[in-house]
Design a protein around this nucleic acid. Structure first.
Lengths: 102, 102
DNA sequence: CGATATACTTCGTGATACGATGTATATCGT
DNA sequence: ACGATATACATCGTATCACGAAGTATATCG
């Protein structure tokens, strides 16, 4: 998919991936993969950004000798998803405008 | 609407605005306005980019003493719109993923 | 005659997706 | 026993891009 099109979709995809239960980097990538391709460098950039924006919280825990950082969504994160749903109406009308035959 | 979300949508909106008949900057902004807000500086950047990518062609003509640059879509431009329609299927599935309740 | 609309242009800035690269451990197959 | 692969997180540099600000210039309307 077009890179530019992914912008604005990725943040919200990551939030959706931790919406129901906390998750960690590698799992998020796998969960999101069926919908969008997401590289590790991109994901960790996004996670840091969302953390700064207080849309998620982090806790570190050891899992089988390896460190894992578990991410949980906050109310602000849930609010971000709601905003996206609002924006979706506009996006759909844009699609109609672009795809219309005449 | 979220700026990041607009990326990838704007190019295609501009192409859609000249899809059926040639148009010019000021008119494109007005035609697209009901769907997305688009500033002049953004539009002219986009027009230049699309021209470089050979998705549109330009001709200059005088109109009531003022210069106007008329833009027409090319086959590559029409192809770009088709690509967007393809991407749309993915975008919709992303929306389902993000907006699902569970 | 000033405000507003039309019309195009350039510059600088901030946001951001991604490839490349690096570190480190666990598991699986042969 | 050992190499490949999967798991897991991190950093850096680059290219792309939307936008506000500011500028130039003419036409129209009240």
């Amino acid at each position: 998919m077009d890179i530019q099109l992914k912008r604005g979709l990725l943040d919200v995809c990551v939030l959706a991936a931790i919406k129901n239960e906390e998750s960690y980097g590698y799992k998020i990538i796998k969960d999101v993969k069926p919908y969008v391709e997401l590289s590790e460098s991109t994901l960790y950039t996004i996670l840091k950004r969302l953390e700064t924006a207080e849309m998620l919280t982090v806790r570190s825990a050891e899992h089988e000798g390896r460190l894992r950082k578990y991410y949980s969504i906050t109310d602000a994160g849930l609010g971000r998803i709601d905003e996206f749903k609002e924006d979706w109406k506009e996006i759909e009308s844009i699609y109609q405008f672009v795809a219309r035959e005449c």
